[in-house]
């Protein structure tokens, strides 16, 4: 897994659907693996393939349209709702996405994404709609994401996005929460003693 996120510019894949739940991102029957790797091939499995058969891609589903490629997934509001399965973040990252743009993320998914260096970029409804149409109309449209300055730019329009200052530092430097928690073990022991 690539750690550290800085600025990047890429084409995008538009997934025009609201309330995309983690059961769609990665169906339960693929959760039986005991390692973190290899989930990308089952990303959106039942939206991508007829009868779950890899030989039968469903025409019309955006991941099956060669015109759309890139490291950013653009999706409708309330992305990642439902099950807490981190496998959803692993699948998106493993498939090759570095960021998801939506107007609204479910809480657990957002944490899981951040813990896996997959950047959830939350934008306004208006900006999301503009981004979605820009990419749908022209698959060559570039999306530029600048984490340092917390901006996203699409077709000449920019918007600021929020991210917790601590999390931003982690992403920019490739630290994770566990590194931090381990560093304060003495405090934790003191807390336990009351």
């Amino acid at each position: 897994m690539s750690k550290k996120i800085k600025s990047f510019s890429t084409t995008a894949v538009p997934l025009d659907a609201e309330n995309v739940d983690t059961d769609q991102i990665i169906p339960a029957r693929f959760l039986k693996a005991t390692s973190r790797e290899g989930f990308g091939k089952n990303l959106f499995r039942d939206w991508r393939f007829q009868d779950g058969d890899e030989a039968k891609p469903k025409p019309g589903f955006v991941l099956n349209e060669p015109a759309f490629q890139g490291k950013v997934l653009v999706a409708g509001k309330n992305f990642g709702c439902g099950s807490s399965r981190e496998h959803a973040a692993w699948a998106l990252k493993d498939y090759g996405f570095d960021a998801v743009v939506s107007s609204f993320f479910a809480d657990i998914f957002k944490n899981n994404a951040l813990n896996n260096f997959l950047l959830p970029v939350q934008v306004s409804d208006g900006f999301l709609q503009k981004t979605m149409s820009a990419v749908q109309e022209n698959p060559a449209t570039k999306i530029a994401i600048d984490l340092e300055n917390q901006t996203i730019t699409v077709a000449g329009a920019s918007e600021h996005f929020d991210i917790n200052a601590y999390k931003k530092t982690c992403l920019l430097n490739g630290y994770d929460d566990l590194d931090y928690l381990l560093s304060i073990r003495e405090d934790i022991e003191k807390f336990e003693k009351g």
Binding site: S84, R85, E86, A89, N112, N115, N116, D176, D177, L178
Partner: peptide, 8 residues
């Protein structure tokens, strides 16, 4: 929580 958090 997610699995990374389970680990934490």
């Amino acid at each position: 929580i997610g699995t990374s958090e389970v680990e934490m």
